[in-house]
Amino acid sequence: MGLTTPLATGSASTRDGQSPVVEIDDVSLAFETADGVVQALSHVSLSIRQGEFVSLIGPSGCGKTTLLRVIADLETATDGHVAVNGVSPEQARRSRHYGYVFQAPALYPWRTVGRNIALPLEIMGVAKGERAARVKAGLGLVNLDGFENKFPWQLSGGMQQRASIARALSFDPDLLLMDEPFGALDEIVRDKLNAQLLDLWRRTGKTVVFVTHSIPEAVFLSTRIVVMSPRPGRVHDIVDCDLDRGRTLDIRETPAFLAVAHRVREGLRAGHSYVD
């Protein structure tokens, strides 16, 4: 394990990985749509400990994004129990326990990159001088030094998504929720950002929940991979992925990596074999 100085932040209940950061217990969620009720999640249970990097992987419609949104209190479970840092998702959201990175960068086009990163700080009432310092640190964290006064449209897609990660980290939440953040990027940029994200996770010791539909991405980044299957969305398998945390992109050629990837692929296949 590369991380030698765990950050002493967050609520006491999450220290030492004793009690889980995210506790999902038998959660179900049904959407009312025009075509009737859609069961998005069915009896999902999952426990995420501090400092873990957990990926949710599955085909579209398996409820992985919905599950992340339930943790973030952007959706409410119809059944079951969810706790984030020992409190309800709503309380966790109100006390700003997590940072959320969306599929699209969702930068506000009328704000510069710097002011986009400062947005959560403005809302949380952080003083101006402190804001400037945190924006600078955030830009450095995602290698965007010098882009503070550019507008989002002047940045490439990869840079925009990096800016959105800096925005999510600007108020230093312990928990980072990421919903296919690199899904819209090309593979080369994606590889680079994956390496940077892994490095960032190692340095900060955050807990990350990461939604993806890419097997290599999930295996490369995660300490655990939750394989989900669709209709109704449920957890099919949970794969431990205890590769060396100092891993680089080269690790993807190793037998250990391929073995995990194989198991994830098998899980995905078994989960919706009727599609073939």
Binding site: A72, D73, L74, R93, R94, S95, R96, Y98, G99, Y100, F102, A106, L119, P120, I123, M124
Partner: peptide, 8 residues
Amino acid sequence: DLLRTYSA
């Protein structure tokens, strides 16, 4: 959604 996550 973004502002909601900040509890704005």
